[in-house]
Nucleic acid binder design. Structure first.
Lengths: 237, 237
DNA sequence: ATTATCTATAGATCTATAGATAATGC
DNA sequence: ATTATCTATAGATCTATAGATAATGC
């Protein structure tokens, strides 16, 4: 669902009941977008294949040409929203200078905030929806999500203060940090804009959760900001 | 769904296929509990009337004797989890001494945390589920929820620092505070215990969100703790 | 010929009602 | 007689497949 994929120069096939717009996305992407919006705003189980098709302007059965039904669509949406983050984790752990260990977590948080802030239709919410979590396709993605949480846990564990270490167990830490970053999806739900100032605030919150003193947070922020350009995709204005 | 309602001395009716336990709750409550667990953990739309009945040990059609179907059950669960909080709001606003204005918000947060921490099956999650929010019955409860958010907004607005007032608009403030309190449902989702220490931490977070300086937070905490006994139900050990 | 749709429909599932029935209470 | 269940089932909805068809590309 690359956000800007337009109608590919593909063979058109039989015309739709509701004609396609000239500047529409590729048919597959149209379906993904419609489904994403409905899944996030009405729920996965509450959305029928007919709902999706109607939103696109095609017949109920037509999406089956492109996808293996609702589960197939969900699988692709989950894939699209978890893979990019996961791919960056490794590069981040390598790129961060050993003398500013806090920068790694700060950078990961910044990048994830950016991803959650720009993914279409606030798709980051999918992972928290009970009907999604109890679906069969979700099971495939659970390992990937756990790996991401584990990465937060590792980077956090590297820098926790002794006071925090005494209070919060290390297998909780990753989850706590992920949750802090997911504040982005809640801001978007409320219709809020997620500015880069807010992104930095959320990243700083992650360091505070680990008990990093403010002076080091400032230093980490500067380092992470410097590294950010290497990782960030271009963000649409 | 009073958590301890046992089998009332009611006439039993035709026996179930799966016999009832001697110490079971009243039939109505059995259904509410089963539904609550399924709605929260699998989703509202993803749960069928058959799922609910099976969990109780009765036939698919039997719940209809007690409720107007799934929407009727949902309505009752929403009612049960919003009314108590709402009833307390007014009393709180009256009970708080004018010389410690921060105590009111602190107390409201403390009481709500307690409610969210003890409600069966983490029911507080219902309000955030898209299939619930787009259901027809939810519309009835939206005003009540908005009133609760508005109460947070009022109590917050009374005490915001000028710095915070400059950053966050007053109609966002209530939502921000509610969200801070709802951290409880996320802790419970992760299987965490919500201790009274955590409750106080969340209440203090609410004051920090409003920009209240630490010294005043300490004072508010003491005042609110003193008032808490008048409001809190007995909490099961 | 290939593609992307369409129409039609079978089968599964879900909801909700009507009416029967197995207990108890009076 | 009353209550709380049961059985049976109609009707709605949903999923997913088979096969037809209307366009374009070669």
């Amino acid at each position: 669902m690359s956000q800007y994929a337009l109608a590919t120069a593909t063979r058109p096939g039989r015309p739709r009941v509701v004609p396609r717009l000239a500047n529409a996305r590729a048919p597959r992407d149209e379906i993904l977008h419609a489904a994403a919006e409905l899944f996030v705003n009405r729920g996965f189980a509450a959305t029928s294949t007919r709902d999706i098709a109607e939103k696109v302007g095609i017949r109920q059965a037509s999406p089956y040409y492109h996808f293996a039904g609702k589960p197939g669509i969900l699988a692709e949406l989950l894939e699209l929203s978890v893979r990019p983050s996961l791919e960056k984790v490794e590069r981040i752990e390598l790129a961060c200078p050993a003398d500013v260990p806090e920068a790694a977590l700060d950078l990961l948080a910044l990048i994830d905030v950016e991803a959650l802030a720009t993914v279409p239709h606030n798709l980051g919410k999918l992972y928290r929806m009970p009907d999604v979590r109890s679906s069969e396709v979700f099971a495939e993605f659970q390992p990937a999500l756990q790996e991401l949480t584990a990465a937060y846990g590792r980077l956090g564990a590297d820098i926790v203060s002794s006071t925090v270490a005494a209070t919060v167990s290390m297998d909780q830490l990753g989850g706590l940090l992920v949750q802090a970053v997911e504040a982005v999806t809640r801001i978007r739900s409320r219709g809020g804009e997620v500015t880069s100032v807010q992104g930095r605030a959320i990243a700083a919150t992650c360091l505070r959760i680990c008990g990093v003193p403010e002076a080091r947070i400032v230093r980490a922020t500067v380092t992470a900001d410097g590294l950010l350009l290497r990782f960030a995709e271009e963000r649409p204005a």
